[in-house]
């Protein structure tokens, strides 16, 4: 028996429920899980069956792709997807660069004002751009960026969360590696690129997944700054689609909803472990 299995067996001594209690608990857990999945299962049912079965369940109900096809053609979803992909890529690319540079400065330099500067960065963890919508709209208008994809992403590009997360990781890099690189003649930026960035790869992955899902899902700020098909991300597009035309039936709206979450949901189902671990890693400070 190796150490890991030994630890696991020991750990189960108290944690293990017995007999009828265990069966009851398993049933409760499964019931809750099914309840949790119910909204999604229901959405799938509605989206892939003809309208007359939207609220009427029957095993013999025919399956159909009509709702999905109809929804896809009823609004410029292809364009919305392109906008979202541009937005998410742009924000992530900018974040990775800015966050890496700032985190390196905070982790490995001593300079006057460092602690104050770091405290000021952390302010953004509490007061996110999400709540400063009125003033940020004023700023975006003054910059002449209203109704552009850049305007959606700009307030989020310097991410306090990313700086914090990466600074923690950079601090765990042994100083000897840093010094060895310097002796080899590396400039600070080369050291950052060749020593720190490769060692922080898991943190980058975690941060990237969290950032992409955040900006794919973001809604209120894009709703405020965008005003045209060319700039709207898919969340705003979906809202415009389902709110404007009251005549559209639920099968179509549900189909459009599933359509808009499909890429992220598929990615999540395929890389479930990475997603969960990334969110975990990002949450542990």
């Amino acid at each position: 028996m190796n150490a890991a299995t030994l630890a696991r067996t020991r750990g189960s001594l108290v944690g293990r429920p017995r007999g009828a209690g265990h069966v009851l608990e398993t049933l409760a857990a499964w019931a809750l899980a099914l309840l949790w999945l119910l909204p999604l299962v229901y959405a799938f049912w509605t989206a892939f069956h003809p309208t007359e079965y939207s609220t009427h369940f029957s095993l013999s109900a025919p399956w159909t792709f009509d709702n999905i096809v109809h929804a896809w053609h009823a609004a410029p979803f292809a364009r919305y997807f392109v906008n979202t992909v541009i937005l998410v890529t742009m924000v992530l690319a900018a974040q990775l660069v800015l966050v890496t540079l700032a985190a390196y400065a905070f982790a490995r330099y001593t300079f006057p004002g460092r602690d104050v500067a770091f405290a000021l960065v952390l302010v953004q963890l509490m007061i996110m751009p999400d709540v400063l919508i009125v003033e940020n709209y004023r700023t975006i208008s003054a910059l002449g960026l209203k109704d552009t994809i850049l305007a959606i992403g700009l307030p989020y590009m310097a991410s306090a969360f990313g700086i914090f997360l990466l600074r923690q990781t950079f601090k765990t890099v042994p100083r000897e590696l840093d010094e060895a690189a310097r002796v080899e003649g590396c400039t600070p930026l080369q050291t950052l690129w060749k020593v720190y960035v490769p060692l922080a790869r898991p943190t980058y992955l975690a941060y990237a997944l969290v950032s992409v899902s955040y900006h794919w899902n973001n809604f209120l700020w894009p709703l405020i700054v965008t005003n045209s098909v060319e700039t709207r991300p898919v969340t705003v597009g979906l809202q415009v689609f389902s709110a404007t035309d009251q005549g559209i039936d639920w099968a179509i709206i549900t189909a459009a909803t599933l359509l808009s979450v499909a890429p992220l949901l598929l990615a999540f189902l395929l890389f479930q472990r990475q997603f969960v671990q990334s969110f975990m890693r990002a949450g542990i400070r």
């Binding site: 800015l98 540079l101 700032a102 500067a117 953004q124 590009m157 310097a158 306090a160």
Partner: peptide, 9 residues
Amino acid sequence: LLLPACVLL
């Protein structure tokens, strides 16, 4: 190193 992030923050 801090400058770009600070400006946007």
